[in-house]
């Protein structure tokens, strides 16, 4: 069974936010590929984590100034208290009939749906084409360039080692097409990708 890293708090066709308790060292990470069920399990909305926020909490605020805070208090706050860590995800495509569509999903996931990380095979399959990059480039209120750079590196890691450079060069070419009128931005992005 696929690991659950959180449950959905709110969503739209453009993006969704899920809550989770204490983040594990591995998940969730900025730029990671995640999926959420949609259309009663017929589909999965694929997304990229673009923000991880821990909400302000007056109770915690009061404790911050305490020197030598015992570990039990810290663990109580992190493990027991229901203060969710909010993770924002940009929708970049969806699964349909065994394949992936690089477009906005027809329906968003529903409240309390389980959010899971995409495994390497899914990421490799999803990134066989790179049409989804335009959804990131032109998404409002998203650190698009950083997100593209990090997610492409993560996707490259899912390729066989001999194919990684080729994958990143293909990505660079796709970005060059999409940013042909914004060479300054393209240059910065390619530097981030170290192509």
């Amino acid at each position: 069974m696929t690991a659950t890293i959180g449950r959905l708090l709110r969503s739209s066709t453009l993006d969704y936010v899920f809550g989770c308790s204490v983040p594990e060292p591995e998940v969730p990470l900025f730029g990671a590929f995640v999926k959420a069920p949609a259309q009663r399990g017929k589909s999965d909305v694929i997304g990229l984590i673009y923000n991880i926020a821990i909400e302000d909490d007056p109770f915690v605020r009061q404790m911050i100034a305490t020197p030598d805070l015992d570990e039990a208090y810290i663990q109580d706050q992190r493990v027991n208290r229901q203060v969710p860590i909010e993770v924002s995800v940009l929708a970049i495509g969806y699964r349909s009939d065994g394949g992936f569509i690089h477009d906005l999903p027809p329906q968003p996931p529903i409240t309390l749906d389980r959010i899971s990380p995409c495994d390497a095979a899914e990421i490799k399959h999803f990134t066989e084409r790179l049409d989804y990059l335009r959804l990131i480039l032109f998404a409002p209120d998203v650190p698009a360039d950083e997100l593209i750079a990090v997610s492409l590196r993560l996707a490259a890691d899912c390729q066989p080692s001999e194919d990684r450079d080729r994958f990143l060069r293909n990505a660079g070419r796709e970005l060059a097409k999409l940013l042909s009128r914004d060479l300054a931005r393209l240059e910065k992005l390619l530097k981030r990708l170290k192509i």
Binding site: D70, E71, A72, Q75, D76, R78, V79, N80
Partner: peptide
């Protein structure tokens, strides 16, 4: 209810 185990690093039981 909460059981806070002073002196142990574990999260309290609630």
């Amino acid at each position: 209810s909460i059981v806070f185990r002073h002196g142990l690093p574990d999260a309290p039981s609630i």
